[in-house]
């Protein structure tokens, strides 16, 4: 049983090693991540959003819907914590 586990792990390791060869070099300007949507943010985000900070422009303007989700997650975490931990006292 243990041998099968080790053999499976070695197979997965071999697949991962092969996959590493296909990854773009870190900082490569021609990689898909750097050519798809980043130039749009870098060149036009100040004109389009008025924010001098790319991070804020992406976080609060282009991906504002995503940030709304994060806020709702935090609110939900608060609600869940209250429901589990708080002691609701009986009204007399």
């Amino acid at each position: 049983m243990k041998n099968i586990q080790i053999i499976l792990l070695m197979m997965v390791f071999y697949i991962f090693l092969n996959a590493v060869g296909g990854l773009p070099i870190v900082g490569d300007v021609d990689s898909p991540a750097a050519t798809h949507i980043s130039p749009r943010y870098i060149e036009k985000s100040y004109k389009e959003t008025g924010s001098k900070n790319f991070v804020t422009a992406v976080l609060a303007d282009y991906r504002a819907y995503d940030t709304l989700g994060e806020t709702v997650v935090i609110f939900t975490a608060g609600v869940a914590t209250v429901l589990i931990l708080k002691v609701f006292q009986k009204e007399k």
Partner: peptide
Amino acid sequence: KYRHQWGILSIEIGV
């Protein structure tokens, strides 16, 4: 441009 800035500030206040 300033409408975007007001919008960003509004949602940041909410957050």
